[in-house]
Design a protein around this nucleic acid. Sequence first.
RNA 1: GCGGAUGUGGUGGAAUUGGUAGACACGCCAGAUUUAGGUUCUGGUGCCGCAAGGCGUGGAGGUUCAAGUCCUCUCAUCCGCACCA
Length: 888
Amino acid sequence: MSHNPTDMPASKTGADGHEVGRRYDHQAAETKWRAAWDEHKLFETDNDAPGEKYYVLEMFPYPSGRIHMGHVRNYAMGDVVARYRRAQGYNVLHPMGWDAFGMPAENAAMKNKVHPAKWTYENIATMRGQLKSMGLAIDWSREFATCDVDYYAQQQALFLDFLDKDLITRKNAKVNWDPVDMTVLANEQVIDGKGWRSGAEVEQRELTQWFFKITDYAEDLLQSLDGLDRWPEKVRTMQANWIGKSRGLQMNFELTEPTNGFDGFDIYTTRPDTLAGASFMAIAPEHPLAKALAKDDAALAKFAVDVRKSGTSAEELERAEKLGYDTGLRVKHPVKPGETLPVYVANFILMDYGTGAIFGCPAHDQRDHDFARKYDCPIIATFVPMDQDGEPNAFVATEPFVPAKTENVRWINQPAGVEKATGQEAIDATIDWAERQGLGSGQVQYRLRDWGISRQRYWGCPIPVVHCDTCGVVPEKKENLPIVLPDDVDFETPGNPLDRHPTWRDCICPKCGGAATRETDTMDTFVDSSWYFARFTDPKAPEPTTKAANDWLAVDQYIGGIEHAILHLLYSRFFARAMGEAGHLNVKEPFAGLFTQGMVVHETYRDGEGNWIEPADVEIRVDGNERFAFDPAGGKIEIGSIEKMSKSKKNVVDPDDIIERFGADTARWFMLSDSPPERDVIWTEAGAEGAHRFVQRVWRIVSEFAVTDVSTSGEMAKPTKTALDLRRSTHKAIAGVTDDIEKLGFNRAVAKIYELVNTLSSTLKTDALAGDTSLKIEGRQSILSLLSLIAPFMPHLAEECWSIMNGSNMVAQARWPVYDPALLKEDEITLPVQINGKKRADVTVAADADKATIEAAALALDAVQRALDGGQPKKLIVVPGRIVNVVV
RNA sequence: GCGGAUGUGGUGGAAUUGGUAGACACGCCAGAUUUAGGUUCUGGUGCCGCAAGGCGUGGAGGUUCAAGUCCUCUCAUCCGCACCA
């Protein structure tokens, strides 16, 4: 077969009446094969089907309006895994749903006067269509949206069960309050101290809120990270840091003179070994002692209010000065009898960590150092670096700040009775010592806070409790569920529409039967996404989960963005535990395998006035290795940095356009090529065209071969060397691609598919095939294997090619090809021969040649003889199967 | 400040246990073709050099017969967390 179009047997037609040489029509083929999969219900999963289970899940999308390239990448990866596992004979669960509650729907309601439900469901309809056009092997029969009453009804049932198991509490907490929108904002929605939407100065308010007691599981959530060996190290580290476990000493400092009922207060420190360096005490403005003092001290009261007015953003904290207010109180120094320390109220002390009070050690803590400099407290070092020569106190006099590293230090000041230890031992020894002295006790602290889930929002899952004047806060009865959101709400005024609904709040107290009012707060949308993966296993069940959840979970492969490394994944891990406690699940870790994929990024373009320009309006011209951009009128466009696709920078490529122009297969292929999946991928026009050319190339090779007459079953041809080589290459590709998909190395799998296609292209030429029956047979086999390998990536193209090759059924029903390990080994191998570590020649020997044979062959080489110049090698290293190194 | 990555041609990136650096792709160069359908095919392409040869995985050292890979130091970029005691 030749690739010259002139040689093409134009009159012939392939199977399926396909005209050979015609270009691959992606639109026709993709529509046809999606319909065929649907018709056979190929991807609908039966919970009781035979075969080992495999649950593959991509993080479900928020129905924002349209899918973007990030979705395409995410779902293409998941689909490769799903189709690959299916072909291997697993019973695969690969569902899709919608994370459908949340603020954007309400914002749209306010802006466009459209009901959040209508907006959301219309978006879902659009995006469902877009996802379907990708040809994903998804069981759409299990689809749900979290705003479906059926879903949130079960979530309310879960809430009641959690309440029953004491997994939920109601308490006061400080929240970011937007006074214009009249709602609580999450920390990430506060930008420079202002509401991200309203621009109003955010207030700190104390509100009564519902909390999930995630801190009860802090230790378990931390410990279990060790078992998550198919999670990225990075994510596990981030979660561990977020949980923030530390061990330290909690100890009491005694006031010289009791006041307001306090005769002292507790502090917490992770560095008790620096106790001798204490030079002042600091307590949070919200500390009970500070509050008590402020009652009789107007200046202190004002100080406490003032310091909390400043913003909470990281930058502001960075700039913020250390501020203190001297209370005039003094405490006894616990290790220096007779000495006392001043007590300050300070702005940099947080009430909700430790005890809200510290001892300041300016010599070893930067913040304490800054404070001491300002308020003139002494700086007392307890150690100096080990490599510090000379008199330690002289060193300390010139270098008052010594970083608090625990290793390699020389002690100059330690509490009496503590052994001269270093590092963690010194800390542990001091804690032991303090316990013996009755000064305090070892304590474990976590940074993790309970999860506040109350939101003053309409578009969320109503919290199923009522407020009764007689009975207080009463859980709703299960038989009264679901508490359904009312439809008739208005968004004319800011705040929560549920609050001002004329009738929705009215209800009967489940306890006393009297008139009561409903809770109008709804749940944080992270609650919705904390158990959806369990619901997919039996999405229509009249209870949250059934036995199916235990059968299917954990998710074998979860794929999504790194941005959910902490919140969503930590909340879901908590939920699995809480659901276990409430009897709904017996799998503790919901995601056995996690993969975090990189973003899709694109160049940015700006015109002379600095306006962002869309890629579609930019023409790229290439001159050598330089690229230049122009607008349609020929005006110069500046090519800017490569950034995440965003509407504001207009560097967005719409998946619909790409799928229409090139087809879903091209989009999928490009998303999986080149870049390692965990890294960002740069979308380029040239790359997309390249992927499309490959689609056409595969089609050309297969469709040209398809007309070859392979009906030679009568004569069993002995395979020629060409045929055997092709077989070898094919089996190598099967082995490589299989291994790469197992490891989610899609870019490497793609490269190996390219190699096989290159081999097929150069091997299956018309003249070669003409006289070689065995090559025809081998070629057919090889192409069928290739199509199986391609199918997870480009399923439509693979089906179309499979059909013209007269493959049985559909490739989506075919088993994954197996390779013969014997064929991976070559008969003869070529070893590199190095002289002094530099490659100078090759030697070809039998694959199973022994050391002596290889040595002799290598020494006989001209290049080696020349280098030896008649002498003997100093050393001769032979690694069979690897390399020969001659040292002269 | 704490924690975690990453660094390889013009570009994206390959490279089991240390064993041929640059697979595969994009781009580029040259050539071929009765070039319709965002062509196709052949060859070339790390750098310097006419060549022999030399140099080459952010930089500097080291271990080794052999280092992208191991060790020490260092630079740069990115990400996460953060007045967390």
